[in-house]
Amino acid sequence: MSIQTFEPKLANVGGIPIARLLPNKGKKPIGAWCFLDHAGPADFGQDDAGMQVGRHPHTNLQTFSWMLNGEVLHKDSLGNHQVITKNQVNVMTAGTGLHQGISHTEQSVFPDMGGSENAARGISMVQLWIALPTDQKIERSFIIILSYRHGARAM
C-alpha cells in the first residue's frame, strides 16, 4: 500500500478559507465524489460577521456537511431554515432533472445572532460533494443528523 499526500487548492469563499482536496491535479474522481472541501478553520473577531455565503444554486448534487466547530444558519428554497451546530451533519440533496435543484445561503451565527449560547466565534467544516446519477429520478431534500452520545437521529 502506498500513501500519497496531496496539496489542496486554496480559495476564500464567503469570508473563510476553503481547502479543496479533491479533485486534485492528476487524480481521477473517487466514485461519485465530486469535491472534498475543508472550510476553515477560521476564527472571527467580535465585529466580524463570520462566514457569509450568499444564495447560490445546486443541481444534480448532494452535499454532506459535517460541522466540526461553529454554527451555520442554512436557508434554502425548500423553506428550510435551520442552524447546524458543532458535531451535526446535514445532507442536502438537490435532486436530479431539469425541474429539480435547491438554492441556499449559509451564514455564521453567534450567541448574539441566533446561535446557541455555546456557539463558537469560528468555523471548521468538512464537506463532501456527491454527483447524483442523472439517469434516476431523485427528489430534493434536506436533513440534519443530530449527534448524541448514544447514537444519532435524523431531523
Rank of each mutant, 00 (worst) to 15 (best):
Q100S: 13
G95M: 02
K25R: 13
E117C: 12
K137F: 13
F64P: 04
S124L: 03
A119S: 07
L78R: 01
H74S: 00
M67R: 04
G115S: 07
E71N: 09
K86A: 06
T134Q: 11
G31C: 09
M113D: 15
G115F: 04
G70R: 06
T59P: 08
S141Y: 02
H104Y: 05
N80K: 07
S65C: 12
K75A: 01
E106A: 10
V89E: 02
G50M: 05
L68I: 10
K27C: 14
F142Y: 13
A131F: 08
G45R: 05
I144V: 14
V53A: 11
L36I: 11
K137R: 15
E117D: 15
R140H: 06
G79F: 02
S141H: 04
F110E: 07
P41Q: 03
P111Y: 07
Q127W: 00
L61R: 07
T85S: 08
N90W: 10
S124Q: 08
K27Q: 15
L22G: 00
E139L: 09
K86I: 06
T59R: 15
Q82R: 12
L132V: 06
D37M: 02
S103E: 14
V126C: 00
A42I: 05
G95T: 02
E117Q: 14
V53M: 11
H74E: 00
P41I: 00
G50Y: 05
I138T: 05
G115E: 02
F142W: 06
K86R: 12
N69L: 10
Q46G: 15
G79I: 06
L128P: 00
P23V: 04
N69H: 13
S141A: 08
H56F: 07
D48N: 10
I130W: 06
F35E: 13
K25L: 11
D37W: 04
G50Q: 04
K28Q: 14
P23E: 04
S65H: 09
H104T: 05
E71P: 07
G40N: 02
Q127I: 00
E117T: 13
S116F: 08
A32P: 14
F110H: 08
D43S: 15
G31L: 09
N80E: 08
S108E: 05
G101A: 09
N24Y: 09
L98M: 14
V53T: 06
H99V: 12
N87M: 07
I84W: 01
G79H: 02
L22Q: 01
W129Y: 10
I143L: 11
Q127P: 00
A120Q: 10
V89P: 01
E106T: 09
D112W: 11
T105F: 04
A49T: 15
A120H: 09
H58S: 05
